[in-house]
Amino acid sequence: MEMRLEVNGTAHRLDLPERTLLVHALRDQLRLTGTHIGCDTSQCGACTVHLDGVAVKSCTMLAVQAEGRRITTIEGLAKDGALHPMQLAFHIHHGLQCGYCTPGMIMAGLDIVRRHPRPDLGTIRAELEGNLCRCTGYHNIIRAIAAGAEAMAAAATGERPGEGQGQ
């Protein structure tokens, strides 16, 4: 069936079978392969994208269900080649090893910051329930999200990073 999807600010018109999952539409049709698939049961979170700014698992959603909504994928975060503060925080804090869960972690991390602008480490641990990582043991991911939140808050207020309470 024909459907229109808005992804990272660009409108696309696609003709896909009804059963196409959003993640497959993104990966196979739009070739946005940064969104990954790590399970079949909506547990691992590697497929996390934002739907109208809210984190969802794109493997547990039909592409057609995303019609009329704004989809943001990992490819939509960096602006003009400059990493988003959350991406940069993952780099600085070694929040990734094999990189496979990373896009989902970053998108979930941003969703945490949306709800908790300066989350403490315990909040991040609890709120990261929907994402699995097998490499890092999570500790550096948690630090990265805290630091990313701080950097985002600092950027929003003009304050210098390091002055906040995120760590």
């Binding site: 909506s42 984190a55 969802v56 547990t60 979930a108 969703d111 709120e127 329930e129 929907g130």
Partner: peptide
């Protein structure tokens, strides 16, 4: 219930 992404859907 579930996790944040699941709760959003």
């Amino acid at each position: 219930i579930g996790d944040p992404q699941v709760r959003n859907r």
